[in-house]
Amino acid sequence: MIHIVNGVSAAAALKNTFPETADQIISLPIDFSVGPITAIHLEHGVSIRADWEDSSFHPLNNRSGEALSIYQRSLKELKEVKNGEQLTIWTCENALEQIGLRIACFLLAGKQLELSIVNTQQALNEYLKDQEIQQTVRHSGECNAKQLAHFYNYSSLPITKDKRTAFEEDGKNLLHSTSQVRTWKNGEILEEAETRDDAFIIDCIKGQVAESAGNDYVDAIRVIGEAYGLSEQPISDSWIDYRIRSLIEAGQVAFIGGLQSMRSYKIKAVD
């Protein structure tokens, strides 16, 4: 079995789930929900993505070099998938994994394969249906190995021919997308402005200032941690830091300290 999974944490969780099997895990570690993904399946698209991450994220926070290297290796592994193989694509209710699902299907187009899908949120709902406690996961990496093993055994569904065709077409269109931000909402991938999260981040800044016992400025890292924890869709700390610095440039947020790392400056919202 070949597993295709999006995100570093989700890939690590799957490796813990199948440590003693011959299953192959192909990881797509790029956050497809933000930044350029135009032609991200080709060398020049990967180069554009790398340039964007280098210019947007701090070198201390930027882990894109390793992620892009893994991603390029994964592209090669997807090309090498042979007819007749069995593949499971893991996804969840977020833009990152829904886009990854569609791009993976596009890259596998034309191959005679047995394709299945596991949606970890839907599987979790089924898993907990008779229990009083309900749980929501923002991404597959929030599931533990026991849950993932159960989902694989009991919640894996075949991808029909029509659904596979639709995913392939969506993937093709996404690889021509020129937007910088993409959101998963009501079963659709929506293209949005780069400023999508700015109002939410400013609310987090104001909330932290209000709780800081009269201090005008609060540590940026505290705001980043709160925004990371409270966001409905998974967003990275590097993305939040990037948007804070963009808000500083726009005059909507003031700062003291140095912007060389997310731990070295304090911020407040400008009224």
Rank of each mutant, 00 (worst) to 15 (best):
S55T: 10
A269F: 04
L60F: 02
K129M: 03
V270E: 08
A166M: 10
E77T: 05
L157F: 03
W184L: 04
Q112F: 10
K79E: 08
L175E: 10
I248W: 05
T120D: 08
R182D: 07
L259C: 05
A220V: 15
I248R: 01
S74Y: 04
E66P: 00
D203M: 09
I30C: 05
D198H: 06
A254C: 11
A254E: 15
H3D: 11
I103N: 01
E126W: 02
L190E: 11
V223G: 02
V270R: 06
L247P: 09
L28P: 10
F57D: 02
A13C: 11
D23R: 06
V270F: 00
P59D: 12
S246W: 02
A50I: 08
A213N: 14
D23N: 02
V46D: 02
I30P: 05
A39S: 13
S179D: 10
D162F: 06
A10P: 03
E43G: 00
S56R: 13
S236G: 15
R263D: 12
K172S: 13
V270S: 01
F255W: 09
H150Y: 12
I37G: 04
D170R: 11
L87P: 09
F106S: 11
F151R: 09
D23W: 03
E142C: 03
I256F: 05
A104G: 02
W90V: 10
S69N: 14
G141R: 03
G100R: 12
S27I: 06
E77Y: 04
K161E: 14
N119P: 04
L42T: 10
R49Q: 13
L60V: 07
L14I: 11
E226F: 13
W90E: 13
L68W: 01
R245K: 14
G251Q: 07
S116K: 11
E188F: 06
H58W: 03
E194Q: 09
S238P: 02
K268H: 13
I26W: 06
N16V: 04
N61Q: 14
D198R: 04
N173W: 00
A210L: 09
A104V: 05
V137Q: 09
I202A: 12
R222S: 14
A12K: 14
I244L: 13
L157T: 12
F167Y: 15
A123S: 15
T165G: 04
R102N: 14
T88K: 08
A11S: 10
I40R: 08
N6W: 08
S140W: 03
L175K: 06
S231Q: 06
F255I: 06
S179C: 12
G141P: 07
L78S: 05
H150Q: 04
P234M: 11
G45N: 14
S179V: 00
N173P: 01
K111T: 01
E168G: 12
L107N: 02
F32G: 07
N83L: 08
S236A: 13
S74E: 04
W52T: 04
G65M: 00
L190K: 06
K266V: 10
E226N: 13
Y265N: 03
I205R: 05
L230E: 09
S69R: 12
I189P: 08
F57A: 07
A254M: 09
N186V: 04
R164I: 07
D23Y: 02
N173M: 02
R222G: 07
L115F: 05
A149E: 14
A199E: 15
